[in-house]
Design a protein around this nucleic acid. Structure first.
Lengths: 231, 231
DNA sequence: CTAGAATCTCTTGTATGCAAGAGATCACTA
DNA sequence: TAGTGATCTCTTGCATACAAGAGATTCTAG
């Protein structure tokens, strides 16, 4: 292969093609349902573009586990199996545990203050009974925590995972046992305390216990959904 | 979107397109070096196929972090930054720790016997001074352990990670401090004991300590390589 | 000799036509 | 009516032509 005469490529953040983002959002946002056909021709017309870029985006989404491309049959929105959901929750626990450990090791960082503000707002949401807002804040808490680990590769893997869990997150967060809601605020508070205690391993274990607990109710919600919508 | 009239797709293992595998192997195997240009036209001629499938494979590899596609300039083999290498070793520790915990929780499984055989052969390789074989067995030990966790999503993420670390694994395993080699056999033996002790958390911690230790020497090797081949 | 602009070449991005196959539909037969 | 076969339509897979831009090169002016 020919050696490039260019100097080392500068590190640039490349914006993701909007087409890919839009298609992904259609899936994780629930605009299309598992089992739905995503035909290249139809999408090409809808986005007023040729099949080629559509095709590339769909291939990408296949690699992300969001769709399944069946040769000469069609591209379908994928529904994770029960087993995959279980596996992904195990990974989620590991990722967020790692993030908590790394964050605790970093010491005082801006993200910690964001987490504190998040908990305060979450408490207000619980007090005012705004389940929708609370659900959003819970998601934000976990995202902020992972971002605070300051490990981009971890973030990449985490985003990949959470996209696949997205539609299940919707049901899990909203349908989870009401009793867990206010309890969750307390757990988030405890997590912050562990993060500031400068004991990374303790922070990791507290985080993992929290994720495992919330995953349990989320998995139950996912199971319930699977029963209601038999494939 | 039109609902598919098909019954739920059966779970089938789809073989990966050989083209993609071959291109990936060219990169992780070292046939092409970081910075090298992978021009679609040249590859199309080399593989006697049109640009379209080549292009799709390259996009895939970009998503895997192995190449960088610069619009209207070229597709180049990517060299991970020092920071990324550090981040990936952190992830590796987490992944293999999770795998050890899951494997320990599973109890007696065939993979454990494979690991014992691996250690026995590794000891022979050390005794006979076969560094090449030993390096290969070390890799096999870790692969077997992750596979034994019986979590496919974990395996997917792990494979993704290890492909990116592949060319660094080459140097790290072969160039790592000779003193660590025989020490490593002992550590592998200790890991197996922890895996059979039915204490998942202990197994995880032992595994993570081992990975962290070996990562340190590997990171040193990667750093050394980076100095020798300035971008 | 140097600086700068125009040009030129090589690259990827996109559109489109055709091939091939999977699956649904419909006709036909026992 | 049930089963079976051919056909037909819709899908993705692949090849290719053209567009557009980045960067190296060359030419020109000072």
């Amino acid at each position: 292969m020919q050696e490039s005469s260019l100097t080392e490529a500068k590190i640039r953040i490349e914006p993701e093609p909007p087409l890919l983002s839009r298609l992904r959002q259609m899936i994780v946002g629930g605009a299309v349902q598992p089992g739905d056909l995503l035909a290249e021709t139809a999408l090409a017309q809808e986005f007023d573009i040729s099949r080629t870029p559509i095709r590339e985006a769909l291939k990408q989404l296949e690699r992300e586990g969001l769709v399944e491309v069946r040769a000469r049959v069609g591209t379908f929105v994928r529904r994770p199996t029960q087993r995959e959901i279980h596996e992904m929750f195990e990974l989620k626990e590991s990722f967020e545990g790692l993030a908590a450990g790394l964050l605790a090791r970093r010491g005082p960082v801006p993200e910690l203050e964001q987490l504190r503000e998040n908990v305060a707002r979450s408490q207000q949401a619980v007090d005012s009974g705004d389940a929708e807002l609370y659900s959003q804040l819970v998601h934000e808490f976990h995202s902020t925590l992972v971002a605070g680990a300051d490990n981009r590769k971890l973030s990449e893997h985490y985003d990949l995972l959470m996209n696949q869990l997205a539609y299940h997150r919707i049901v899990s967060q909203t349908l989870s046992l009401p009793g867990r809601l206010k309890n969750s605020v307390g757990e988030h508070q405890a997590i912050i305390e562990a993060l500031t205690s400068k004991d990374p391993l303790a922070a990791e274990l507290v985080m993992r216990r929290h994720v495992a607990a919330s995953s349990q109710s989320a998995a139950m919600a996912a199971l319930k959904e699977a029963e209601e919508q038999p494939g």
